[in-house]
Write a protein that binds this DNA or RNA. Structure first.
Lengths: 102, 102
DNA sequence: TCCATTGTTTGACGACAATCGAACAACAGG
DNA sequence: CCTGTTGTTCGATTGTCGTCAAACAATGGA
């Protein structure tokens, strides 16, 4: 549990990324990370339980959308903007723009 | 069955669009429509059965990605490029680019 | 009118996904 | 140590998805 798995930049899979983004809760997480930068899991104020949110973060992490840094008792999540831009140019920006004003 | 349902431009829903694109078979259909323009359902040479393909076309249609025109015994499908571009600027282009060379 | 073609619908099946409560693990501070 | 905090994992439930075969519908042509 100390070391979290993140796929490499070359392993990012487009269908998996699109699938991860197709859930409203996960899309909201990504929007906030894009707007506010790094955040701990518990600071999103979403209405799901801890277990459900942990599941969504896992889906996002395994799809390569976010990376999670462990520091003490917290997990700080951030968007993998550069990896995503390198692999899928313009995609993240288009999705964020399409998801409405921040 | 004569008149097919297509959502209006304003009704296009981003999670639904991303979900529709997150299946490899459906993504391939979209890629070919983008490359070749209008095509009948049976001309894609995909390995799934008629029933499965019909299901995928329905998902794409109901998400607003394609429109289907009935002519005789054929259903001609085309990408709703302009509606998609109006609602989600840059998204389709980024997805197509990310999905590999045509 | 009969038949072949094209695509949809139905019903079924197995696999997977979203959700939750409860138990667990790791850590920080007293 | 003990305790509270933060987040993960487990087990179970409920629902959805992708897939297929079979039946059906609509059309055009022989």
């Amino acid at each position: 549990m100390r070391n979290l798995q993140h796929p490499g930049r070359e392993q990012l899979d487009l269908p998996a990324v699109l699938y991860a983004l197709s859930d409203p809760t996960r899309l909201e997480i990504v929007r906030r990370l894009a707007a506010d930068g790094e955040r701990a899991c518990g600071t999103f104020g979403l209405s799901a339980t801890k277990a459900t949110l942990s599941h969504h973060f896992k889906v996002l992490r395994e799809a390569g959308l976010i990376q999670t840094r462990v520091e003490g008792v917290h997990r700080y999540n951030s968007l993998r903007k550069q990896d995503l831009e390198a692999r899928f140019p313009g995609l993240l920006k288009a999705v964020l723009k399409a998801s409405g004003p921040c």
